[in-house]
Computed example of a mutant assay.
Amino acid sequence: MFQKPLKQPISVLVVLHDGNGNVLLIKRADYQNFWQSVTGSVEPGERLIETALREVYEETGILLLENQITDWHESSQYEIYQHWRHRYPEGVTHNTEHVFSAKINHNSPIKLNPKEHTAYDWMPIKEAADKVFSPSNKAAILNLHKHLF
């Protein structure tokens, strides 16, 4: 049986928004009621922006170009939930998450990978911030207004 390679403890978080105060959230398939923005780990040799673009495409089916995504040049470190630590090398307990955002059309067709996500929804910023399970995701959603041009 094929075993996935272990993840690096470096990831991206991409807040997708419509520019009108709404954020796109996706619901995880592996944990009921875990809503989030697009996230994913950096693969070997990838730049952070490449990871962000790849993850947006893999998780939503939306193909963005580098000039369509904003690197906040901000990161946070958090403790990896115990139930996900098996995905990382032994002894790794913390992850560094780099934040990005992108404005997409509210009517963009969303194509979820059913192995990863089971639903999506556009929500007003406050509602989205309250719905996500991750404190760093909540902070990014609430700070989105600082990164709109």
Rank of each mutant, 00 (worst) to 15 (best):
M1P: 12
F2S: 10
F2K: 15
Q3H: 08
K4C: 09
K4N: 13
P5K: 14
P5S: 11
P5I: 05
Q8D: 14
Q8Y: 07
Q8V: 06
Q8W: 10
I10V: 14
I10Q: 06
S11N: 03
S11G: 11
V12I: 08
V12R: 00
L13I: 13
V14F: 02
V14Y: 05
V15H: 02
L16M: 10
L16G: 00
H17T: 05
G19V: 08
G19N: 07
G21Q: 05
N22F: 06
V23Y: 04
V23W: 02
V23D: 04
L25A: 10
I26M: 11
I26Q: 12
I26E: 03
R28I: 06
D30G: 14
Y31V: 12
Q32A: 11
Q32E: 15
Q32S: 07
N33V: 03
N33Y: 05
S37D: 06
V38D: 06
T39Q: 13
T39W: 12
G40V: 01
S41A: 15
E43M: 11
P44E: 13
P44S: 14
G45F: 08
G45A: 08
G45L: 09
I49V: 15
I49N: 05
E50F: 02
T51L: 06
V56L: 09
E59K: 15
E59A: 12
T60P: 00
T60Q: 11
G61R: 03
I62K: 00
I62V: 08
L63A: 09
L64E: 14
E66S: 15
N67L: 04
N67A: 09
N67T: 14
Q68H: 05
Q68G: 01
Q68Y: 04
I69C: 05
I69Y: 02
T70H: 15
W72S: 01
S75Y: 09
S76I: 06
Q77N: 11
E79R: 15
Y81S: 13
W84N: 11
R85Y: 03
H86R: 07
R87C: 09
R87K: 14
Y88R: 10
Y88M: 10
V92Y: 03
V92M: 06
T93K: 13
T93N: 04
T93M: 14
H94V: 12
N95Y: 01
T96L: 06
V99R: 12
V99S: 14
F100H: 01
K103I: 05
I104H: 15
N105E: 08
N107C: 09
S108I: 04
S108R: 12
I110S: 04
I110W: 02
K111S: 13
H117R: 05
H117M: 11
A119R: 01
Y120M: 10
Y120F: 13
Y120N: 06
D121H: 12
D121W: 05
W122M: 07
M123Y: 09
M123F: 13
P124D: 13
K126D: 14
K126L: 15
A128K: 01
A129L: 08
A129W: 03
D130T: 11
K131C: 10
K131L: 12
K131F: 04
V132T: 04
F133G: 15
P135G: 03
P135V: 11
P135C: 10
A139L: 09
I141T: 00
I141Y: 07
I141R: 00
I141N: 03
L142G: 02
N143C: 10
N143T: 04
N143A: 06
L144G: 00
L144Q: 01
L144F: 02
H145D: 08
H145V: 05
K146S: 12
L148C: 12
L148Q: 10
F149M: 07
F149S: 14
